[in-house]
Nucleic acid binder design. Structure first.
Length: 679
RNA sequence: GCGCCCGUAGCUCAGCUGGAUAGAGCGACUGACUACGAAUCAGUAGGCCGGAGGUUCGAAUCCUUCCGGGCGCACCA
């Protein structure tokens, strides 16, 4: 509702300014004032115009107000302060619009059930968007840093879908990189296992219900240490082993590669299971092995040479390599650029950025004659997740060829990401380069206290730091499944205390929903740029600005309707049958301001969604959900609904609760948080 | 050395394209459960928005500079 009114007012102001002063302003600022006493919308435009018009801002504001006249939905305009123009809404009309009975055409995704449901039909006029997130090396268990990535990515997918975009979710699998090679070195050389023995180990773990990703977590850390534990000569030999193994993986078709395939696939499956606990699903898992074996690079290489993005270096330290300019590099024509980025090494192998360029050309549908094979890999309740293959199944969906892409990757990778964008731009794909978003975020680190509690050795220097970076290589961090288990244990304890009349299965379900709500909200409440210093005390908190707080507000409303013997939908219809004057009456006076504020907050959803997508910042919606919950809880304490004697007022209060419920449930669903039946 | 990010209440963080009196949670202290269940609410204390200049009607927000912290700058992925 807010978004529409804001646009209407801006358009009307634009027309007035053009007619009255012959001034055309593209973006007229229309903001939400800090307090309700200044109205519901305001513009400082007169302050801005004061200079060009060489007149006092208050006078200009007065003239504009007179020229504005009447606008549907608005009760009036007034000049305030130094020259603000404040707009007051027609409250009865506002309530009717926000209640949305008969559904407002411009807010077509109002219906909770549509969003996130398979029957939801995306807006065909909108883009086909590709979001890549998670992308954990398949050689160890997922940790809290990966959780931030996956939760941010998954939430952003939900937001894009809510706005009408068609979105494919990809999880890139680097199954032929050094990290997988390292754990293979661990299995083959540290543990001396053959392919058959590795297979036997997987079966054994499966039977015992143990997690292979946990096994690899320890083995990977041990192998990383092993490279540095021996004498200088031994270490040199071990490093050779490492690169020989890496080479074997890239080549494929050998026993080492088979061990890698076995391990990485098993670990990948575990990652998908872990993420499914958080309600995170994927559509496609492109693997590096296919990018290599299906020779995506050959096509990309030709294009890069033809467009002059890559050139062969004949001098300096990069002699014999194919290199490209870094973004922003200022080098005179013909001068040696020693800082150039190597894409093809002098031995003919391709660097990571090179492979990434080829992959991104594919993402945008710019790699003619090359595509993955597709195989079914993992089945979700309502769809399949596909994985890349050299020879896929006959029938398969098509991925790639997107109009816009988002890569959820931590901020440490902004340089290589910038290189890929630079390459696209250099090849003349400027539109694609503009629609390539590195959705970057800061890492999750541990507070020193948390690290000590977990039993890690923490050096005195590290103790003094505000936070310590987690490291898979060192085996230092909090595993995702451990954290989820711990959260469920904590919520179960609370649910046991409170829900004594419910059976075990119901209590389990509720505890799970609250645990996931707490975890997802915790990862979303911080803006992307801030480092999360992880601490169990904060993450296990269910009070204050948390997921459970928001869920609790919605559950309270559920209880009101259960006890009141009516439904949200029925009450909203009843309310629209009240006379507008009567509704307006309930919104008058000091006492009613908080009720009106709650309605206004409810009307802000599409505006906040818009901002969150534009800024790629899911935290905006997390904050919005919290504010909704907070305002409802405040309302709940001030107004006792079910004992209200005036039937019309009771209907109105119930409608207020109904709208708050609808908004909370919808926004929480966008955040991937379910609303439990009871708490 | 170069590049990016951060510095706001005791702690953890919001503050949208510059706008009206800088906000929240936690922690501390006071209060509120025979109400729609207190995983809640009300209240109190707590701030030279890292420092200094500038831009303008107006700066936590933009520019410059300094200080403090983090992360990147491979023929590693």
């Amino acid at each position: 509702m807010y978004l529409e009114l804001q646009k209407q007012l801006a358009a009307h102001l634009r027309a007035v300014l053009k007619a009255k002063y012959s001034i055309e302003i593209e973006n007229i600022p229309v903001e939400i004032p800090p307090e309700l006493k200044f109205g519901e919308l305001a513009t400082p435009i007169a302050l801005q115009l004061a200079r060009t018009l060489r007149r006092a801002p208050k006078i200009i504001a007065q003239e504009i107000v007179e020229a504005l006249g009447a606008l549907p939905g608005f009760a009036g305009f007034e000049v305030a302060g130094a020259g603000y123009i404040n707009a007051r809404l027609d409250r009865a009309a506002g309530v009717r619009a926000i209640a949305g009975v008969g559904s407002h055409p411009s807010d077509k995704n109002n219906d909770v059930a549509r969003v996130g449901h398979p029957a939801f039909v995306p807006d065909s006029a909108k883009d086909h968007v590709l979001v890549e997130h998670t992308s954990i090396n398949p050689n160890k268990a997922a940790h809290i840093g990966h959780l931030r990535n996956a939760i941010l990515g998954d939430t952003f997918v939900r937001l894009l879908r809510a706005s009408g975009s068609q979105v494919d979710v990809q999880n890139y699998i680097d199954n032929t990189g050094v990290q997988v090679a390292d754990v293979v070195v661990g299995f083959v050389h540290l543990e001396g296992k053959s392919l058959a023995e590795v297979r036997a180990l997987l079966d054994k773990l499966k039977q015992k219900g143990e997690r292979i990703d946990y096994y690899c977590w320890d083995l990977y850390a041990r192998t990383s240490q092993w490279y540095e534990q021996g004498s200088a000569e031994e270490n040199a030999e071990r490093k050779k082993l490492r690169y020989a193994t890496l080479h074997a993986l890239e080549e494929g078709d050998n026993e080492t590669a088979e061990v890698a395939e076995l391990i990485s696939t098993a670990v990948l499956r575990r990652h998908l299971e872990t993420m499914l606990r958080l309600d995170i699903e994927y559509d496609f898992l492109p693997r590096e092995s296919e990018i290599l074996h299906l020779k995506f690079w050959d096509v990309a290489f030709e294009q890069l040479k033809q467009t002059g993005v890559l050139y062969f270096e004949t001098e300096g330290k990069n002699k014999g390599c194919w290199v490209m300019r870094r973004p922003g590099a200022e080098i005179a024509e013909g001068e040696l650029d020693e800082d150039a980025k190597v894409i093809v090494r002098s031995n003919g192998t391709i660097t990571y950025v090179g492979k990434d360029i080829a992959y991104h050309l594919w993402k945008f549908g710019l790699l003619p004659g090359r595509d993955f094979g597709y195989k079914k890999f993992f089945t979700y309740p309502d769809h399949e997740c596909w994985i890349s293959a050299e020879q896929g199944e006959e029938e398969h969906p098509h991925f790639g060829g997107a109009q816009a892409i988002y890569n959820v990757i931590d901020s440490r990778q902004s340089d290589p990401q910038a290189n890929v964008i630079q390459a696209l731009r250099g090849m003349g794909h400027t539109e694609q380069a503009d629609r390539y978003t590195h959705f970057s975020y800061e890492m999750v680190a541990l507070t020193p206290r948390c690290a000590v509690d977990l039993g890690y050795d923490v050096s005195p220097e590290d103790q003094a730091r505000p936070y310590i970076e987690v490291s898979g290589r060192k085996g230092f961090g909090v595993k995702a499944d451990d954290l989820i288990d711990k959260l469920i244990a904590a919520t179960s304890e609370e649910v046991e205390k409170r829900q004594t009349s419910r059976d075990e299965a119901e209590r389990q379900k509720i505890a799970g929903q609250i645990a996931i709500g707490a975890l997802r909200y915790f990862m979303l409440k911080f803006t992307r740029n801030s480092v999360i210093a992880f601490d169990f005390r904060d993450a296990l908190s269910f009070e204050g600005e948390t997921g459970p707080y928001c869920q609790y507000a919605a559950v309270r409303i559920r209880n009101i309707f259960r006890k009141g013997g009516t439904t949200e939908a029925a009450v909203l219809v009843e309310m629209t049958e009240l006379a507008p004057a009567q509704v307006a009456g309930f919104l008058e006076g000091e006492e009613a301001e908080d009720i009106w504020a709650l309605w206004l907050r409810a009307g802000r959803r599409s505006l906040v969604l818009d901002q969150a997508i534009t800024a790629s910042e899911p935290a905006y919606l997390a904050k919005h959900a919290f504010q909704l919950a907070q305002e409802f809880n405040n309302f709940y304490h001030k107004h006792h609904i079910l004992t209200e004697e005036n039937p019309a007022k009771k209907t109105f209060l119930l409608a207020t609760a109904a709208v708050a419920f609808r908004e909370l449930v919808t926004v929480l669903a966008w955040l991937g948080i379910e609303t439990p039946e009871a708490m």
